[in-house]
Amino acid sequence: MTDVTAGALQVRNIETYYGPIMAIRGISLDVAAGQVVALLGANGAGKTTVLKTISGAMEPQKGSVHLNGEPIHNLDPDVVARRGIAHVPEGREVFPFLTVDENLKVGAFSRRDAGVQTDLEQVYEYFPALRELRGLAAGFLSGGQQQMLAIGRALMLNPSIMLLDEPSLGLSPKYVAEIAAIVKRLNAERGITVLLIEQNAKMALDISEYGYVMENGRIVMEDTSERLKDAPDIQEFYLGMKDEGVRGRRRWKQRKTWR
């Protein structure tokens, strides 16, 4: 459905501010077409700001974002969306008073092609639960259903890239597994490139091929997901595996940072 060569994202040295506060302190990252890339980091590290800068909701003061070689960092977010980048924001952000069906159809607002109806069917096939709820206002859905709706709505754009911001936030383990499976499936079947932010680092590293780790607005580590899983810092801070000392407690000296 999607051309597999489309969907390469290059971010170069972006610096983004919230007023006087510098949230992104020079970040570069590459997402190759057809890849699933994870962006990890603690709260406040600036992950969401990176996604917002890519999708055009925030403008970088410096640096550039290129999609398939074309600069997109000065475009409005609706134009970026029409170029094929679908942003699924943190906290779902569905349209609460529109029905499930309307939410999905409005996701295809910018499209005029005949594929809209088949894509709608496809979304209902990916998320059978949504078909049953199609006439219900989206505000009444549970968190997991809203997350599926948000992903489905983004799919209606027929994107080449999806930016997923914390899709598993606040969801039950069953939904987390389901979301992970869907992300893998979208990547495999439709060749959609995925840039994924996750608190659930294990899930993120399981489904991604490459990972970046952010801290205080910078990228502090990057590697293939396999190697990141084995890195001691990642195991300790994100995967919760901790070598305990002889006295059952880590020595203060070994602590790298105070947080």
């Binding site: 909701a57 977010p77 609706d78 679908a86 349209f95 008073f97 939410n103 409005v106 983004a154």
Partner: peptide, 17 residues
């Protein structure tokens, strides 16, 4: 309606707000 319910999400789905 979408744009009035959630401006940012409307942008993200490609609505020229």
């Amino acid at each position: 309606q979408a744009a009035s319910q959630n401006q940012l999400a409307a942008y993200y789905v490609g609505i020229p707000v």
